[in-house]
Amino acid sequence: MLTLIAILVDGLIYSSYLFMVAVGLTVIFGVMKILNVTHGSFYAFGAYMSATLVGIYYQTDLPEFGGFLAIFGAALVVGLFFGVVLERGLLRFLYHRDEHTIVLATFAMFLVLEDVLLMIWGTDPYYATEPMGLLGFIDYEALSYDLYRLSFIALAIVVGLGLWLGLTRTKWGKILLAVIFDREISQAMGINVTVVFLVTFVIGSILGALGGAYIAPTISVSPGIGVEVIVLAFAVVVIGGMGSIPGAMIGSLLVGISRAAAVHKFPEIELFVIYAIMAAVLAFRPEGLFAPAQARKI
């Protein structure tokens, strides 16, 4: 019984982690059809910026809970900066090229940013554990959970709900759906696709950076964290259906819960869980669980 509870809670925490890591990638892919490898850099820069700002914040005498503002501030700063610079400075010149070239350009940008990260922050790791200590932990029989990592769940729900409401209940969301469905017709109908792309890319970047910034207090912020995230986010997005937000949510839950079950019951196969689910989904529903239908071009 206790194991079952642990599987559920651990699974939900990990699912939320996956969702936060993957959602930025899926937003950008959904609208712009760009697999943004730079997503890994956004995550890493978000984490480094968060660790730096949190570190600075706790050297002041300001109220302790303000540390969370530093985290969200870091995500906003990083996301806005890279979102605007990359979209305006690089991607917009490539929209008329084929999509593989764009993926490769983001891959190149990722390589460049990996080293920029080293130039700015060096190789030493950064820690920002204060916010995690702040929230304390709860005990339940032999188990105990820290509230900070439990708060992943809340954040994932807020982000997911926010995006869903934004897409389905606002005018902006409708415009976005129109662009997703047919870019050219939307343009003909008077939608400013340029602005839609810029805004989408910036939102995706902020979400990517938010993943890094919020997770930073639980990890050692050190070189190489961006690479790992790309693969993970990519797997979740493939499983859920590329570009679908509910898909990313279901994909995260599927992987998260299965992984927790594996860790508790068959730790030997933990490494395989994500690949196995991906393989199964690919074999039976290669477009992912929630992929939007594709029109065939004549």
Binding site: V9, D10, Y14, I215, S220, I225, V263, H264
Partner: peptide, 30 residues
Amino acid sequence: FSGQYGAEISALMLSEEPLVHSSLWGGDLE
């Protein structure tokens, strides 16, 4: 390089064995 050890920590807490061997290093260890 997975970086998230929530489920593993729960599993270790629920395990009966009192001693845990680990060769983690670097960022994963931290």
